[in-house]
Design a protein around this nucleic acid. Structure first.
Lengths: 245, 245
DNA sequence: GGACCACGTTGACGCAGATCAAAGCCCCTG
DNA sequence: CAGGGGCTTTGATCTGCGTCAACGTGGTCC
């Protein structure tokens, strides 16, 4: 799929949460200035991950969670027989690695879909800080809980929706997340391939491609390769709420 | 589906975690005797839930999580159009309600599939105790993380597996959880209907029924209504690991 | 700038599972 | 013990998506 194992320097940089423009989306959300100063000592090391590189792999020992500073990731799980399932796409301000806490090993792979930068949050220290800063503790619990709710949404998508509904839900979700980050709600570039979208949505890449074409013909969106423009968000939403039988 | 809204007394009982025979599976796992004594003050109230009754509903304010003391639950999410997806089946020692932390509202319904009893764990107090007992804090994080990993497993199931693989995975999972609770690994009664299994597995009830019949014919299991006997666990596992194309 | 390669699109066809329909079983209630 | 309702089974048919195959496209490397 991507390059074997490129030996690569991953410079580790320092920057404080208190100056980060993602702090309203990310772990420090809702902390007071004083608490933010404390957090700066916890989350001070960053790491670059090149496009195609793994941030971690299933089975790696779990030591830290990661906050995405810039870039875009996918997470996936492999079955022994080679089949795999993309479990999510993550963008700036989102947290990676919480699946590893339970078993002290990462349980999925995290791969950068574009050159990215993550903040390293050593987990033992996060727990220790959480015991002192209850706002941090509570916010961390919320983030884990939201991950569970998000997964339920995907289960719903995979369990009950038809192909076009799944793709519509996917596009609306992306649009909403880009909006929260200050980007256009209606125009963006996909970072993932049709195959990766398909894996996430439980569809084959041909089906994803056909659904894109169909949305295009119907004037719901325009697609050119990875460039998407949403022309009729209401129409996409209607697809979701319409019972089919 | 079940009785409208039976006004029902839900006696609230008291019993300590330290005497609970589920403590090795449940929240108190790994706590020292001294820590267990503290926990007893947190988790001391129980609640009965009759078969068919909701423990909570989507939208209810979130105040506590629940540990199942006895009984069996399902959780499900509803789409506006009436379609619904069962997101999980929970048995004794498992925790319900962690999906509500993020939004301060429950995001799914929890329904008892048999007369059940749950321990009420007020969430604000759990967080407060977690700040004092790091083993409790860490264990709670593990439970949330495992919930995420479990959901990834379901996504895999829904995203890549064929009908019979899904059912085999489901049966093996149940068997393993019954075993952990000291019941027979090979013989048990299903608490849910074919329709509920289907909703969980992303299949229609007829497909579930046919798959059961097929497993029966092939000698993998024997089924009589809700009674299941696993005759060839290895055969079921083989179904899972065999690539299909 | 030509050739390669990964990715994407489109068409033809097949099949797993959905849908529709009918009947059987189990348990409850009167 | 008769009747009814919920659940399950089984059969016949339909269909959405998968599969297979061919071709298009854009980006990159020499």
């Amino acid at each position: 799929m991507h390059a074997k194992v490129i030996p690569l320097s991953v410079p580790e940089l320092r920057e404080a949460c208190s100056q980060c423009n993602l702090r309203e989306l990310c772990l420090p959300m809702g902390l007071s200035d004083g608490e933010l100063d404390q957090l700066d000592h916890l989350v001070e090391v960053r790491r670059r991950v090149q496009r195609g590189q793994h941030l971690y792999r299933g089975g790696d020992p779990f030591e830290a969670i990661f906050a995405i500073k810039t870039g875009f990731f996918k997470t996936d799980v492999l079955l022994e027989d080679g089949r795999d399932q993309v479990t999510g796409f993550q963008m700036a301000g989102e947290i990676l690695g919480m699946d590893g806490i339970g078993s002290e090993k990462h349980t999925c792979n995290a791969v950068a879909l574009e050159d990215s930068e993550v903040c390293i949050i050593p987990f033992a220290e996060l727990e220790s800080f959480s015991r002192e800063i209850s706002a941090l503790q509570h916010h961390f619990h919320k983030m884990m809980s939201r991950e569970i709710v998000r997964d339920h949404g995907v289960m719903m998508l995979l369990g009950v929706m038809r192909a076009e509904e799944r793709l519509a839900a996917f596009l609306l979700n992306l649009s909403q997340r880009f909006t929260a980050r200050g980007y256009s709600p209606t125009e963006f570039n996909l970072r993932m391939t049709r195959g990766e979208i398909g894996s996430y949505l439980g569809l084959k890449l041909e089906t994803v491609s056909r659904a894109f074409s169909r949305f295009n013909e119907e004037g719901l969106i325009s697609v050119h390769q990875k460039h998407i423009q949403i022309r009729d968000a209401a129409g996409l939403k209607k697809l979701l709420s319409e019972r089919r039988a």
